[in-house]
């Protein structure tokens, strides 16, 4: 068996040359979260990246937990995730070079149209969570250690509830956003989802968006290149070029301009690198980013809920 496995590997390696796509552009792998991918934003960004940078950006769509793991073992060149504390730990441990905030979207609470526990009447997210805990109507949790799952747990904590003590109405499915939404649709259950996944979801059934807009539901995405000192093979130069692109005006236009059913999903908020202690950034970048600020305020009034100008300030340092 061992011999056959080795020979299989060897022959497969030979085959790989034949299988590899004859790519002119340079390939780079980035791990992203399902919520980002489900939004469809990647379908706008990837072609632009290909055109502007000549980079074939290959996305590995996984949960935040696995994305961080992929970065840690050097299987991707960069990650784009949304779980600040985990990201900071990742950078602190030396797995990534630096964390750059790019944009945010928001989470929404979905549930049956009749809304038996009255989530829609809540004045904030904590109250909505309390109502659900009290009503004990079915609730589907991702239960997969993803960023979304972590966010959900944080929300329960903010309402001083402990999911570990919940009864059988609390269903941890251990699956991606789409599967979890499918499950919720099938069970007519409540669920927390990112707005993009919800809007793109094709099997809504009797489910309805019941609550959104509380700033604590905002969801900051950050880009982290994998540390080339730990993994010399990673394409650090490409990762840097991609970072420069992601904080550029071009990315701002595409991200802010991406709409689904007339709703803007993401808000670009890459901040001036020099405002944070990042000494290697040049002065030119500082000017460039500062020059963008007026635009943001101009665009904002046109934005649909929940992206009000004042909430955006809070979102740039998400409540945790």
């Amino acid at each position: 068996m061992i011999t056959s496995r080795i020979s299989a590997t060897v022959s497969a390696i030979c085959v790989s040359a034949a299988l590899a796509a004859p790519a002119m552009a340079e390939e780079m792998k980035m791990a992203v979260t399902t919520s980002f991918h489900n939004s469809g934003l990647s379908e706008v960004l990837l072609p632009a990246i290909k055109t502007d940078l000549d980079i074939d950006l290959q996305l590995l769509v996984v949960g935040t937990g696995q994305a961080l793991k992929l970065g840690e073992s050097g299987d991707v060149d960069a990650i784009l995730v949304h779980s600040r504390s985990a990201e900071e730990a990742f950078v602190d441990a030396g797995h990534g070079t630096e964390r750059t905030e790019i944009m945010y979207n928001d989470f929404v609470l979905i549930g049956p149209e009749q809304d038996p526990v009255g989530v829609a009447l809540s004045k904030d997210a904590a109250e909505a969570m309390s109502r659900m805990a009290l009503g004990e109507h079915s609730f589907v949790s991702r239960g997969d250690d993803s960023g979304t799952h972590k966010k959900e747990l944080a929300l329960w904590a903010s309402a001083e509830e402990n999911p570990e003590k919940f009864g059988s109405w609390y269903r941890a499915v251990g699956a991606g956003m789409g599967s979890a939404l499918n499950t919720a649709a099938g069970m007519d259950a409540y669920i927390m989802s990112d707005r993009a996944s919800w809007l793109n979801f094709g099997n809504k059934g009797d489910l309805k968006l019941l609550f959104s807009g509380d700033p604590v539901l905002f969801n900051q995405y950050a880009y982290i290149p994998v540390n080339p000192q730990k993994h010399p093979h990673v394409k650090a130069e490409l990762a840097t070029r991609l970072k420069d692109w992601l904080v550029s005006d071009r990315a701002r236009e595409l991200i802010d301009g991406y709409k689904l059913n007339g709703e803007q999903l993401f808000t670009f908020n890459a901040v001036d690198p020099n405002a944070e202690p990042a000494p290697e950034q040049g002065e030119a970048a500082e000017e460039e980013v500062e020059a963008q600020d007026p635009d943001t305020t101009e665009v904002s009034p046109e934005q649909t809920q929940p992206l009000e100008p004042e909430t955006e300030v809070e979102a740039s340092k998400p409540a945790k």
């Binding site: 790989s16 290959q58 840690e72 073992s73 050097g74």
Partner: peptide, 28 residues
């Protein structure tokens, strides 16, 4: 095949070759 695994140096993870290897093991 992971970069942190024994065959990581080949950089085969997330390529069609990796899929072929897995299927060969399953099918043989």
């Amino acid at each position: 095949l992971s970069r942190s695994g024994p065959f990581g140096v080949f950089g085969l993870l997330f390529t069609p070759t990796a899929m072929v290897i897995a299927q060969v093991i399953i099918v043989t």
